[in-house]
Nucleic acid binder design. Structure first.
Lengths: 227, 227
DNA sequence: TCAAAAGTGTTAAGTTTACACCCATGA
DNA sequence: TCATGGGTGTAAACTTAACACTTTTGA
């Protein structure tokens, strides 16, 4: 390596990824947390994480770690940031890159989740977590809220077909505030990429509610989103 | 180290920081770039960077690197994100954390900047840069724009006393669009933390313009900002 | 005396918010 | 038949955008 002198006098570090996995359940925004059944910090709550390996990019490590816990691939993920305090992990110095993922809870592999002793926890009711994981979740939540206000990412947490009531409850869970039903529906009606289908959901009410779907192709042309 | 088994089978990586240093000059938003007079990639354009060391956090490494080039401490910095592609640096695998900084160009150490062969370059007129540095600057710019819309960070690039015309030109440079002078000043007038002083700047016009200052304490109470 | 930048209000358009009742259905 | 969630429109309040002239002063 011709310039290796340039690199060689510098230290190397363990680099990990931690995943903040968001899901929507009934009317709650949840995060998937491990009640650790392995060392270190066995018995404590943490995010799902793992070390970056030689043959993968940092982004790919995050995808792998998400897949290990949920069985899911091709999932919406965003980088939250890098946590690099010297003593953040008391065992060894580890620099960790946090990512958030949005998944549909029903599509995750229940068996895997069980094996890892992972549980869906309401975002407003978090237990004490190891290291700086609470801070990671807070930052992930802030970023996700900002993103969800201007880009149609929330659909990642819904089934392909959803009712407007479900969609409204999701936004209410994300932002922690209630919206007027008529005003909410007016805004949705302006977005041509949220399409009415001819299917009806009868599980939520006797009358039944029209099911809608998000059309990504129409969105890409259309390009306006604002909740 | 009691749990060292947990860590020891994982690889370690060089971790670097790269700084996107923004400054405001007349009516332009500029970035401070190195025309590298050292290896590797000598002769090419790059951001100022450096390796994270054992005895410093990643944030501290970024502050150090900024200080090495500009002589400045206590500067507004934000993390942009981590760039972790395997081949991003063709010399060795290096995981890099990018940060942006907002500085007042006149306060930087001209001698140091000269030693590093660094130049202020218009953000809209960037040269070709090594590795993924162009991508880093684009992302930094996007984040800085978003932040500047809702938090009063732009003052970091202005002198302590500034005219409303300077402030408007700064926002026009950040957002790449022109604003109506009366509407702009109305919004400023609503922000009690942008205070009129009794000083006059005569350098920009014959008539002279009132100098204003940003009062951080009043802002902390007040808490509304929107350009 | 004039060129050049500073400074100043009003109106129309658009957006956001508040608000209440009927509908369809299964139990 | 009634309890439950689904579905619908309008008007007032507020915010944003468009617009032009007078002032001051040094050269």
């Amino acid at each position: 390596m011709e310039h290796s002198n340039f690199y060689i006098h510098n230290p190397k570090f363990y680099v990990s990824v931690d995943c903040i996995i968001f899901g929507f359940n009934e009317s709650e925004l949840d995060v998937l947390l491990l009640k650790r059944n392995f060392q270190p910090a066995k018995g404590q709550w943490s995010l799902m994480g793992g070390f970056v390996q030689e043959e993968e990019s940092v982004d790919d490590a995050a995808k792998r770690v998400l897949r290990e816990l949920t069985g899911l691939s091709d999932i919406y993920m965003e980088q939250v940031g890098t946590f690099g305090e010297i003593e953040r992990d008391p065992g060894e110095r580890v620099i960790s890159v946090a990512y958030y993922a949005l998944i549909n809870i029903n599509e995750s592999d229940k068996e895997l989740v069980k094996q890892y002793n992972a549980f869906w926890v309401n975002i407003n009711d978090l237990p004490e977590l190891i290291f700086d994981h609470t801070e990671m979740i807070e930052k992930a939540r802030t970023l996700m809220c900002m993103k969800a206000a201007t880009e149609p990412i929330s659909f990642e947490m819904l089934p392909k077909l959803f009712t407007l009531t479900q969609l409204q409850k999701l936004y209410e869970a994300i932002y922690g505030e209630e919206y007027d039903k008529r005003n909410f529906r007016k805004r949705i009606a302006d977005m041509k990429f949220i399409e009415k289908t001819d299917k009806i959901d009868k599980t939520g009410s006797k009358r039944g509610a029209v099911l809608y779907q998000f059309n990504k192709k129409v969105y890409n042309k259309d390009q306006k989103f604002k909740i």
